[in-house]
């Protein structure tokens, strides 16, 4: 599983220190991503999905309590790398990030073209013209008209800025691009446009994507693989086709049922209750208190077990019969 995978994470933890105790934002997360794949990490706000992105990219705030686990990119051990070599070899050139609301954090006084070209000139030592050509090519791929190169970010619409940000993430030809809620602030039509762009990039450049989102419907546009995150942990990892056809974990099922459908389908339902606090979360299954299928066993922490080809679920409903 570890060999030949693009990204391999085992028991990844990222806890934050707060005055009230450690926040277990990412707790024992394990998954594998193959090349040319898109993995969608689904979860609600506060489930730790953005922290997972930070953990992978080692973009850690000051108040880190625990940061541990195994992390391999192309069989290269990321956790043992020094900060400087990680920055030079992995960040941006190996894994890049389209952060949440990144389109609002473009430098307002630098022209779009120059902003995209900057890493090329600094890190890859291209000269101005080479960099320009490369930027033009990239912007064309994400659908930004050529004459936008000389504009300032405020002259661009949200959708255009988001495309620029995606181009910036692609500029160093990384193996993996992490997209944190890339379309959540955008309109439906723009959203569909951006998803089209991402699909095209995935096809043409064979870039892998780690898509972090709360929007199940949109994630289905890109994902080959789905990981559902709840209260800091992955509760289900599955190939996309089977997942969207039939999610297994009770939380995944509930989440899927909460999506309002435009065509056919039932009236959406909500999930009663709230996720537990990530400071001293309860032992056992963290979804147990909201779960309709709860039984005695749920007081113990269920393992993430393989139930089908390409499907793993962290729930006693699925691991119980395996043992008996």
């Amino acid at each position: 599983m570890k060999e030949n995978s693009l990204l391999y994470a085992q028991d990844l933890r990222l806890y934050f220190r707060t005055t009230r105790g450690a926040v277990q934002a990412v707790d024992r997360v394990s998954f594998t991503m193959d090349r040319r794949q898109a993995l969608a990490v689904l979860g609600e706000s506060g489930c730790g999905k953005s922290s997972l992105a930070r953990a992978i990219l080692r973009l850690l705030p000051r108040n880190v309590h625990t940061y541990s686990g195994e992390l391999f990119l192309n069989n290269q051990d990321l956790m043992s790398m020094g900060e400087e070599s990680f920055r030079q070899e992995v960040r941006w050139s190996g894994i890049s990030l389209v952060a949440q609301a990144a389109m609002n954090s473009l430098n307002p006084v630098v022209r779009v073209g120059e902003q995209v070209a900057e890493p090329l000139e600094i890190n890859q030592h291209l000269n101005r013209r080479e960099a320009r050509d490369r930027v033009r090519e990239l912007l064309q791929m994400v659908g930004v008209p050529e004459d936008f190169l000389n504009r300032y970010p405020f002259e661009l619409s949200g959708g255009m800025r988001q495309r620029v940000v995606i181009a910036m993430a692609l500029v160093a030809d990384p193996y993996l691009v992490i997209l944190d809620e890339p379309t959540s602030a955008l309109d439906v039509l723009t959203q569909a446009n951006i998803m089209n762009v991402l699909k095209r990039i995935k096809e043409e450049k064979s870039t892998s994507f780690l898509l972090i989102t709360h929007d199940i419907a949109t994630s289905s546009e890109l994902a080959d693989q789905v990981a559902v995150m709840y209260a800091g942990q992955l509760v289900e990892v599955s190939d996309a086709a089977s997942f969207f056809y039939q999610p297994l974990h009770p939380y995944s099922r509930k989440l899927m049922a909460s999506v309002p459908r435009l065509r056919g389908g039932e009236k959406p339902e909500f999930i009663p209750g709230q996720p537990p606090s990530l400071i001293n979360p309860p032992g056992g299954c963290r979804f147990a208190n909201r779960c309709p299928f709860r039984f005695d066993r749920c007081q113990e922490d269920p393992p993430l077990v393989k139930v089908e080809q390409e499907r793993w679920v962290k729930c006693w409903l699925y691991s119980a019969d395996e043992e008996s």
């Binding site: 898109a38 619409s157 959708g159 255009m160 439906v188 039509l189 723009t190 959203q191 569909a192 446009n193 998803m195 089209n196 699909k199 095209r200 199940i216 419907a217 949109t218 994630s219 289905s220 546009e221 890109l222 994902a223 080959d224 996309a240 086709a241 997942f243 969207f244 056809y245 899927m256 999506v259 459908r261 435009l262 065509r263 389908g265």
Partner: peptide
């Protein structure tokens, strides 16, 4: 608008949406 709204459907990944150009 209706055409652009996605549903959780694995078919989505294989097709491009027909979106009117521009903004």
């Amino acid at each position: 608008l209706i055409a652009a709204i996605p549903e959780p459907d694995p078919e989505n990944a294989a097709t491009f949406k027909d979106v009117p150009p521009g903004e």
